[in-house]
C-alpha cells in the first residue's frame, strides 16, 4: 500500500502539488491522468521519493519512504530524462540496472529490446525521442520492481510502439503482479489497462476511482432548447452546445431509466459519453466550479 499524506510539492513560490492525500493498494495498475502542468510528474517524484515534498509524507507499507534504501531498491521511476548519461550505451545501462536492482531480469530486457527493435550497442544520445521512450519502458518493466512508475512513457512513440508498450505492460503484469502507475493523457488508448484512475487538476486530486465506475458516468441530453433547459435545471452541467433551436448539454452523473423515459416522452434524446470526453470536460472547468 502506498499512502500519501498531505503531500505538497513546491518550486520556489509555485505550488505544483497541493496537499494531496491518496491511498493506493498494492498490485494494481493505476492511471494518473491530468493535463500538462497539472502536477503529474511532481506528484510521481514525491511518490517515488525522487523528490522530498515541501510538506507531507509518503508511506510504503506503513514505512516512511524518503531516503529509505530498501524502498528505493524496490522502486523504478522512469521519467523522460531516463536518468542516464547521454554517452552510455544501452548495454551499459543494462549492466548498471542489473547491479542496482536485485529484481532486474536481463533476459526479459533483451527480449524487450528486440520487440522495440533497439540496438544494445547504441548510445543514448543516438536514440530518437520514441526510441528513448521505448528504452525507458524496457528499463522500467525489466526492473520488475514492486513499485513501477512510468511517467508519460509513450512520448514520441508511434502507434505501433505504443500498442506494443501497452500489450507488454499487461502481459508482464499478469505474469508478475505488482504496483504499476502510468501517467498519460491518451486515455482512450490505455484506459482498459487501468484498475483505478487518479485525475490531477491544478495540483489537486480531482478524482480517484475505479475505472469501471467512471465508465457510464456523464451523458449527453439533446433536443428542443426549452425541454433541454428544463431537464438541465437541477443537474450538474459540464458543457453545452447550441445550434438554432436545438440544444445539447453534457451532464455529470448517471442516467436514471425513469428520467430517460420521461425525457424521451418530452422529445429529448440521451447518449453516453466516453472516458476521454469525461476527462476533458472535468479538467476544463473554471477553477471555482471544480472545487
Amino acid at each position: 500500500m502506498i499512502e500519501l499524506r498531505g503531500v505538497t510539492v513546491r518550486y520556489g513560490n509555485a505550488v505544483a502539488v497541493h496537499d494531496v492525500t491518496l491511498r493506493l493498494p498494492a498490485d494494481k495498475i493505476y492511471g494518473l491522468l491530468g493535463r500538462n502542468g497539472s502536477g503529474k510528474t511532481s506528484l510521481l517524484g514525491a511518490l517515488t521519493s525522487y523528490r522530498k515534498p515541501a510538506a507531507g509524507t509518503v508511506l510504503i507499507d506503513g514505512v516512511e519512504a524518503f531516503e529509505n534504501p530498501a524502498i528505493a531498491r524496490r522502486t523504478a521511476f522512469i521519467r523522460d530524462t531516463l536518468d542516464l548519461s547521454e554517452t552510455d550505451r544501452i548495454s551499459c545501462a543494462f549492466r548498471l540496472a542489473g547491479r542496482l536492482r536485485p529484481s532486474w531480469d536481463g533476459a526479459y530486457a533483451d527480449r524487450l529490446l528486440d520487440l522495440f527493435q533497439l540496438d544494445p550497442g547504441k548510445r543514448v544520445s543516438a536514440l530518437s525521442r520514441g526510441q528513448k521512450s521505448a528504452l525507458g519502458v524496457v528499463l522500467g518493466l525489466a526492473a520488475r520492481a514492486p513499485l513501477t512508475v512510468l511517467d508519460e512513457s509513450y512520448l514520441g512513440m508511434d502507434a505501433v510502439a505504443r500498442t506494443l508498450f501497452y500489450r507488454e505492460v499487461l502481459a508482464d503484469y499478469l505474469a508478475h503482479p505488482r504496483t504499476i502507475i502510468l501517467s498519460t493523457h491518451l486515455i482512450d488508448e490505455v484506459a482498459d489497462l487501468f484498475e483505478q484512475v487518479v485525475v490531477l487538476d491544478r495540483g489537486r486530486v480531482l478524482l480517484h476511482e475505479e475505472t469501471e465506475t467512471l465508465r457510464g458516468r456523464g451523458y449527453t441530453v439533446s433536443g428542443p432548447a426549452a425541454a433541454v433547459d428544463a431537464f438541465a435545471t437541477g443537474h450538474a452541467v459540464l458543457g453545452e452546445q447550441r445550434l438554432g433551436g436545438v440544444r445539447a448539454v453534457t451532464v455529470d452523473g448517471r442516467l436514471d431509466p425513469a428520467e430517460v423515459a420521461r425525457g424521451e416522452a418530452a422529445g429529448l434524446a440521451f447518449g453516453p459519453i466516453g472516458l476521454q470526453d469525461l476527462f476533458v470536460l472535468l479538467t476544463s472547468q473554471p477553477l471555482e466550479a471544480s472545487r
Partner: peptide, 9 residues
C-alpha cells in the same frame, strides 16, 4: 490477456 483489459475488470 486475450481482450487486453485489466484482470480485475
Amino acid at each position: 490477456a486475450f481482450y487486453r483489459i485489466n484482470p480485475a475488470t
